[in-house]
Amino acid sequence: NQASVVANQLIPISTALTLVMMRSEVVTPVGIPAEDIPRLVSMTVNRAVPLGTTLMPDMVKGYA
């Protein structure tokens, strides 16, 4: 089972991601792979991401 990136807090729309905002967790459905966390830092989300939500590729500008 692959770990995915999960929001560690509410991430408001257009917020630049930082390490403290994300954690890795094995979830269903599978989202962005946890090993991509370093790549996600400073990318922005294009929607509000509630606490505990799995980050999907279409939620992060420039990721997909």
Rank of each mutant, 00 (worst) to 15 (best):
V30M: 12
V41M: 06
M21F: 03
M43K: 11
V27I: 07
I13N: 13
P57S: 09
P38H: 09
P57F: 05
S42A: 13
M22S: 01
G31F: 03
T44Y: 12
L40Y: 02
L19P: 09
I37Y: 02
S24I: 08
L10S: 12
N1P: 15
P33I: 11
M59F: 14
E35N: 09
N8P: 03
I32G: 02
I37V: 05
S42E: 11
T28G: 06
P57I: 06
A64E: 11
S4D: 00
N8W: 03
L10V: 09
P29N: 04
M59I: 06
G31A: 03
P12G: 06
G62W: 07
T18K: 11
D58C: 13
V41H: 00
Q9G: 05
E35Y: 08
Q9W: 06
S42R: 11
M43V: 04
L17P: 03
T15H: 07
V60I: 13
M43C: 10
A34G: 08
S4A: 03
A3I: 07
D36S: 11
R47M: 13
R39Q: 12
E35T: 13
K61W: 09
A34L: 03
P12C: 07
N8K: 09
L51G: 13
M59R: 00
L19F: 15
N46R: 08
D58H: 09
S42W: 10
D36E: 15
S42Q: 09
M43T: 04
T53H: 15
P38Q: 09
S42K: 12
P12E: 10
S14L: 12
N8E: 08
E25L: 11
P57M: 07
D36A: 11
T28F: 09
V30D: 12
V30I: 14
G62M: 07
T18N: 05
D36M: 13
N1T: 15
N46S: 13
L55S: 02
L51W: 08
Q9N: 06
Y63W: 14
T44K: 10
G62R: 06
V45A: 05
S4Y: 03
Q9T: 15
Q2N: 14
Q9R: 13
T28E: 15
V60P: 01
A7I: 04
R39P: 01
